[in-house]
Design a protein around this nucleic acid. Structure first.
Length: 606
RNA sequence: GCCCCCGUAGCUCAGUUGGAUAGAGCAACGGUUUCCUAAACCGUGGGCCGCAGGUUCAAUUCCUGCCGGGGGUACCA
């Protein structure tokens, strides 16, 4: 948790003053939060209306506890606090006011501006970085598409969220390990092999992925008419598992074709470098590691046979039994995940392992994590070497389309590639209309189109289902990626026009308008937003923040004086201009860095 | 049946872990540019915060029940 310097100062001084004010009380109410800086720290919030102050401390509970008049005690506190900061220079940038039952605290603008802007300008893109993680490894299992199926918009969520978390942990000094748990094994390959043999020649279609997809859809359609197909598919998969050459060759081909197309897509999404050996750690990687895992569970006395299958009963924990080996001897994905956890622990000794997988798999991960926990109990693993407390399912809601879950089998799926292409084409049109002289139009259009799609995906809380809405994804106005990029381009444009380096001696006191204060407060918040994102594994906090920040700056940019004229950033007033340009430069750094964390590129012109 | 998630403006969603007059974007309507990028900014209208209880100085937030939507519930992933 990143410590807020101002908040800490407030907690300290309030606690100190309360100690003095109510020293007689301390004996009867020693547990009262106002006496303890750390508890106070947590109570300090921000006022609804920013004009009331930077921070707010509600005192209702206190008044009740000490049975005194709320307004009176609030006033008394504020008076004594203001007297205290007058005497103590270290706190002279704080001022307090009593409103209702709240003690509102204002940080002097000049101090805030100087603190924030010098910090950002000194650190540059490292603003918000830390060494908190001490290079500890965070394994992030994300994206994980199925081989031989097209990459649908549904896979975007895991990819975008996982990639954002990867970058956030990296910024906080951890060493993230991005693992793509490719769905490259399982009965669907039996189906595909059968389909390929039956209709492979008539499939047409140049794009090899779409060809496979058509075969897959056709298989499921024909299977409804001819149930004997599913028996053939099972046999084909069995042959694959037994290492038969024909089947293995087909499988290898499916895999390579898919990986080629995934690589291209990942590269467009700016996530390709985040994977640790992209093509290695698919499900098939664990084929030769499952026996050992299963035996270990058996030896621990956890398993039993039920209806011919090997299971671990989890009824005690209110969970369905975990199936390890099917009656026919084949393994399941839970088996692979268990083997995967054990392998990853041996290989990486991670601090945490995150599974960025849809919430439909919630019970699955509960089961798998519980099995690991039971194993460690049975084996008496020392507590600091246990894996189970380090495992976390980072779940997210479905992407649905017109109130239907998307289903590859039925063929109602939207290709991510198609979405990116459409968004990019639209961005291109927009550039041609608004800025036809732009140098690198195609490249910029790609940045904007892809940025719009990623931001749309990361701008709602991850756990709720989202309706895929073409209109929302292809919108470039309001709460969108392009809005942020546009703001960034505008900042860059200001910097170009200014054309000088920001001077060192800046008169921070000129940044005294409420709109500017708002921007400063938000800039100050950036490091906290990053650490909050890591604590909750919720990248949308960054999206939300960036939108607030951009919006706050655009208000500064277009504010008007009393006669209705825009107050320009760059003017004849040198000291005002250099202070504002310090703000502009800081803004540009933070918004760019925030976009980078989300995987969105920040063009300097658009 | 049991378990989990969701229900806030016409639509899509926020609401800082219980605080002040519930906020944004889109859509609708009106305004702002002799131009530091209008992909922007300002304004107007629009709310039984699903319903009913409970806890609390204070509930959109926590608890219980109900209604509605979604997901999961051993040989798919």
């Amino acid at each position: 948790m990143k410590v807020d310097r101002f908040k800490k100062e407030i907690a300290d001084i309030v606690s100190r003053e309360f100690d003095r004010l109510l020293s007689d009380l301390k004996v009867s109410e020693p547990e009262l939060y106002v006496f303890k800086p750390d508890l106070l720290y947590k109570r300090i919030g921000t006022p609804k209306n920013p004009e009331m102050g930077t921070y707010a401390l509600p005192l209702f509970e206190l008044a009740k506890k000490v049975k005194s008049n709320l307004i009176e005690i609030c006033q008394k506190l504020v008076e004594s606090l203001n007297a205290a900061v007058e005497k103590d220079k270290r706190y002279s940038h704080l001022s307090f006011s009593a409103v209702g039952g709240f003690c509102n605290i204002k940080v002097k603008n000049e101090t805030l501006a100087e603190t924030v802007l010098t910090d950002i300008l000194n650190k540059g893109e490292d603003y918000g970085s830390s060494d908190l993680g001490q290079k500890k490894k965070i394994v992030i299992d994300f994206s994980s598409p199925n081989i031989a199926k097209p990459f649908g918009v549904g896979h975007l969520r895991s990819t975008a969220i996982g990639a954002a978390l990867h970058r956030v942990y990296d910024k906080l000094g951890y060493e993230p390990v991005g693992i793509n748990h490719l769905g490259d094994w399982g009965t669907q390959f039996g189906k595909l092999i059968v389909a390929q043999r039956l209709w492979g020649d008539e499939a047409g279609e140049d794009d090899p992925i779409k060809r496979l997809f058509n075969l897959y859809v056709r298989y499921h359609k024909e299977e409804e008419e001819d149930p004997s197909l599913s028996e053939k598919a099972r046999e084909a998969f069995k042959a694959l598992e037994d290492g038969e050459q024909d089947e293995a060759e087909l499988w290898m081909n499916f895999r390579e074709v898919s990986l080629d197309s995934f690589r291209e897509l990942y590269s467009r999404l700016n996530v390709l470098p985040l994977f640790y050996e992209l093509d290695k750690y698919g499900e098939s990687f664990y084929n030769d590691k499952m026996d050992a895992a299963v035996n270990r569970l058996k030896d621990a006395g956890l398993t039993k046979i039920s209806d011919g299958a090997l299971i671990i009963d989890l009824k005690k924990y209110n969970l369905p039994a975990c199936l390890l080996v099917k009656a026919d001897g084949a393994t399941l994905y839970a088996t692979r995940d268990i083997a995967g956890i054990l392998y990853r622990w041996e290989t990486f000794r991670f601090e945490k392992a995150l599974y960025v997988v849809g919430s439909a798999q919630k019970d699955h991960f509960k089961q798998v994590f519980k099995v690991i926990e039971l194993l460690e109990e049975a084996e008496n693993t020392p507590h600091d070497e246990r894996i189970s407390p380090r495992l976390e399912h980072v779940e997210f809601g479905w992407i649905r389309f017109k109130d239907q879950a998307m289903s590859t089998r039925k063929g109602n799926i939207i290709f991510l590639e198609e979405v990116l292409d459409k968004a990019t084409a639209l961005a291109r049109e927009m550039i041609l209309e608004k800025n036809p002289d732009l140098k690198d139009i195609d490249r910029t259009a790609e940045m904007i189109g892809v940025g719009a799609v990623i931001f749309a995906d990361l701008s709602t809380r991850k756990h709720i289902d989202v309706n895929f809405d073409w209109k929302a994804v292809l919108s470039f106005e309001g709460e969108t990626g392009p809005y942020l990029q546009y703001t960034h381009a505008r900042l860059c444009s200001l910097l170009r026009k200014y054309g000088k380096t920001i001077p060192a001696d800046i008169k921070y006191s000129v940044l005294d308008r409420p709109e500017e204060t708002r921007v400063l407060e938000l800039l100050y918040k950036f490091p906290h937003v990053i650490s909050e994102t890591a604590e909750t594994n919720e990248p949308y906090y960054i999206s939300l923040y960036l939108f607030e920040l951009a919006s706050a700056f655009n208000k500064v940019y277009q504010r008007k004086d009393d006669s209705g004229r825009i107050i320009k950033i760059i003017s004849d007033d040198k000291s005002a201009t250099s202070a504002r340009m310090a703000l502009v430069k800081s803004m540009q750094i933070v918004i760019r860095e925030g976009l980078v964390l989300l995987g969105i590129e920040a063009p300097e012109e658009m």
